[in-house]
């Protein structure tokens, strides 16, 4: 058994965000994300990012933990930033060889990066402040199609099993002297190993399906879930949803 980093590692700690009803949290946060993503003015995006950081701060999730996840996401944001920087047409203020940087490019690159950063932080907040199974149950209660919830559920359950299975294959290749190199032989061997993983997953899926039908699976997954909205949940939801509406309102009236 191996321990893998899990996004819901800190689901058990206490904070106003953790105690917030997951259904309400899902709707409110998604609303805020949509609002930030639709913001056309950079000042609004900065404000959205500020709100996201504030909410993450309130959630008490250690910054080092968030940092570890952001570590792998920041290169993507940077990638878009650079692409936009050089590709948006406008008045050039600086040139590197044949590439021009324009004011419009800086503006759009910053706006998009800010939106992305804020959205990712908020998604992290949504998924990191409740156990993943709880989030899935909230999705189901909110009317997300059962089939979609099932796909997420199985991905969550079996991703680690598959990783372990591949690690076993990889280890058994290592002990027989296989070293990964950038040559055709390595590529072919790894390709075969991945093929075996597919075959194994296929077999496992059949066995799991048998186990499911043995226990009455008929296409719908049923779970017991208990959600209860109290007054504080409503207040939190109105605050965050209000924020989302306000962002759009300001954008509409002043920008």
């Amino acid at each position: 058994m191996l321990e893998f980093p899990k996004i819901d590692k800190y689901a058990g700690i206490k904070s106003p965000i953790h105690s917030w009803d997951q259904r309400a949290k899902t709707v409110s946060i998604l609303l805020l994300i949509t609002s930030i993503v639709l913001a056309q003015d950079i000042r609004l995006a900065v404000f959205g990012l500020f709100c996201a950081i504030l909410l993450v701060y309130v959630s008490n999730i250690p910054l080092s933990f968030i940092g570890r996840y952001m570590h792998s996401i920041i290169p993507f944001i940077l990638f878009f930033f650079i692409i936009l920087l050089f590709t948006v047409p406008g008045k050039a203020i600086h040139s590197i060889y044949f590439l021009n940087i324009s004011i419009e490019g800086i503006y759009l690159a910053s706006l998009i990066s800010m939106r992305m950063f804020a959205s990712i932080l908020l998604m992290f907040l949504l998924l990191g402040t409740a156990r993943f199974d709880h989030t899935l149950k909230a999705f189901e209660k909110l009317g997300v199609p059962n089939k979609f919830v099932q796909i997420l559920m199985f991905s969550y359950r079996y991703i680690f099993v598959l990783i372990e299975e591949f690690q076993r294959i990889s280890r058994s290749m290592d002990v027989r002297g296989f070293r990964k190199k950038t040559n055709m032989y390595s590529m072919k061997t790894l390709g075969k190993a991945v093929g075996i993983l597919f075959v194994k997953s296929y077999e496992r899926s059949i066995n799991t399906y048998h186990a499911m039908t043995s226990r009455g699976y008929d296409g719908t997954i049923r779970t017991l879930s208990e959600f209860k909205m109290n007054n504080i949940d409503w207040v939190k939801s109105f605050m965050v949803a209000g924020l989302a509406v306000m962002l759009q309102g300001i954008g509409f009236v002043y920008v």
Partner: peptide, 14 residues
């Protein structure tokens, strides 16, 4: 193969 739900409770309740 038998335990396919996210938690032990959900699995036993399935």
């Amino acid at each position: 193969d038998q335990l396919f739900m996210p938690t032990v409770f959900d699995d036993v309740a399935f």
